[in-house]
Design a protein around this nucleic acid. Structure first.
Lengths: 131, 131
DNA sequence: CTAGAACCTGACATCAATGTGAGAGGCAAG
DNA sequence: CTTGCCTCTCACATTGATGTCAGGTTCTAG
């Protein structure tokens, strides 16, 4: 398939797909005229890359992880492994912080609701529980 | 306290604190000579703001939420409320996605370990579970 | 063969938060 | 008063992923 179709199927813009290739996250074969051709496998790869992007990994980091996905037997797998564990932990920490923040928002919402319903509770005071 | 101390106590750079003020997220009184002075309450506020930043909210969004923190009785509380619920949901979705991604990394790690230990499992094949 | 859609490269623009540097002024201790 | 540190404003730079535009080429349907 050509780049437009891959774009349509993954939701990634054509621009982004070319950027991914430039960063070494995606490969393509070229037609005689120089147009990029992809196999169906690339769909999955793009989705995976996008997932990692959404998790806050940078292209550089993703590039380090992909070798393991592609060829687990390579020598650099150990480095990639290290990187993966590290990112996994970072992700865990981030998730926990987001959960705390969500809880904080919940407290605010609850306080605001109480205030609205009773006209008495102080939602501002609730904010003091976040420091 | 002056800006340097607030910076030291919150971990936010002096530059960032000025930026927060510019965005309406933080207020200060000025000395005769024009220097910013803060009360201890501002520490808490900065921490709260940073937490929201870390959760991926933009200054614009945070600005919309702060009225509720400051004065829950204001008219715009309803809009802020709406915004808060919306952000809360967005946050929940994001957390779920991060958890899925973490799980995906776990699968990769496990597969890589299995490969390393047995020299047989195919970690590349494991990657096919992420699409 | 031809028109139009899709593609190519390359370059510049964008956004948001923050870094950085210049030049000037405030403020406390000696 | 002076020295040194902190602060002020203003402005430009940075980062990373992506948008967008221009000028040219490839592919495909009719």
């Amino acid at each position: 398939m050509r780049i437009g179709e891959l774009s349509a199927r993954t939701g990634a813009s054509v621009r982004s797909l070319r950027y991914y290739e430039e960063q070494g996250l995606l490969t393509s074969t070229r037609s005689a005229g120089g147009q990029r051709h992809y196999t169906d496998d690339e769909i999955e790869r793009v989705v995976f890359v996008q997932r990692l992007y959404a998790a806050g990994l940078s292209s550089r980091t993703i590039v380090e992880l992909l070798p393991c996905v592609d060829s687990p037997s390579d020598d650099h797998s150990d480095a990639a492994m290290e990187r993966m564990l590290q990112e996994r932990d970072r992700l865990s920490d981030h998730i926990e912080e987001l959960q705390r923040t969500r809880d904080a928002l919940d407290v605010l919402v609850t306080a605001a609701r109480a205030y609205r319903d009773t006209g008495r509770a102080n939602c501002g005071a609730a904010a003091t529980t976040f420091a």
